[in-house]
């Protein structure tokens, strides 16, 4: 059974991989033996340092690419680099995203546009290009990182919730379209996870959210990465079009 978790010889590409959930996914997939490519807007020198760190820690190859997912040319170039270096793509963790919180009436159009550009258009472009590389080998697993608010909404997050709901629609549609090519597409909908995105929440707000979590703890990036490993591996070889909630029971 454990051999099904072995990703040796595979290549996983993680967008927004330098920190938070992306970083946890990157380390977890590397620990399972996968070579890693990741992108981030962080400066290239820092990305090279992270890549070296991953290579030394897990004895896998790792390539860091500076890329803004809002820029189609940069995204295309990133896939060209991935293809040139590794010649394959087995797993995409489509994670790059931003969250801006404001009441609907106070949400600027710029903020709406930024979240749509990064969380939706950037994710769609990665989905498109990754699936084309995967189609060459007639196999692959795409893991879209959505959010619990894309399923049930949240006050003060209308635009963010809209962007994350869009990812769920894209996941279902792409799963149908790409299944004949051996490509699985699933989504993870994290709940309240301890990342930089929570910096905007004050102690009172955190306490209030904590009351809605049946498991009575804030999730860790590793909780999401564990689900990503399942979806990346052959343990989920007959799973596509699904949304896995990693939320400690917020929806129960």
């Amino acid at each position: 059974m454990l051999t099904k978790l072995d990703l040796s010889g595979q290549l996983s590409y993680i967008t927004g991989g330098s920190r938070g959930i992306g970083r946890a996914c990157m380390e977890t997939l590397a620990e399972a033996g996968s070579d890693i490519a990741f992108c981030s807007t962080t400066d290239q020198l820092r990305l090279d340092d992270v890549a070296t760190e991953i290579e030394q820690k897990y004895s896998v190859a790792c390539l860091g690419i500076q890329c803004d997912v809002r820029e189609p040319e940069q995204v295309k170039l990133a896939y060209k680099r991935v293809n040139k270096r590794f010649g394959r793509l087995d797993v995409l963790v489509n994670n790059a995203g931003v969250m801006q919180t404001a009441l609907l009436a106070m949400t600027s159009f710029e903020s709406m546009r930024e979240m749509m550009d990064i969380n939706v258009n950037g994710a769609l472009l990665n989905l498109q290009l990754a699936s084309r590389l995967m189609a060459r080998k007639q196999r692959g697993s795409i893991i879209n990182i959505s959010s619990i608010v894309g399923r049930v909404g949240s006050e003060g997050q209308v635009a963010y919730a809209a962007s994350k709901a869009a990812i769920l629609g894209a996941t279902a549609s792409a799963a149908k379209e790409l299944a004949p090519m051996g490509i699985r597409v699933n989504a993870i909908a994290p709940g309240f996870i301890d990342t930089d995105l929570l910096m905007g929440f004050d102690a009172e707000a955190k306490k209030s959210v904590l009351k809605t979590i049946k498991m009575s703890r804030i999730g860790q990036p590793q909780d999401v990465a564990n689900a990503a490993l399942f979806l990346a591996s052959d343990l989920s070889s007959y799973v596509t079009g699904e949304i896995i909630g990693v939320d400690g029971g917020m929806l129960v």
Partner: peptide, 21 residues
């Protein structure tokens, strides 16, 4: 359309290129 995607994948693989959308 499905065959077209398969065709593109095989062309890219055979010629080691990436074709823009």
């Amino acid at each position: 359309s499905l065959a077209h995607m398969r065709l593109i994948a095989e062309i890219e693989d055979a010629f080691d290129i990436m074709i823009d959308s």
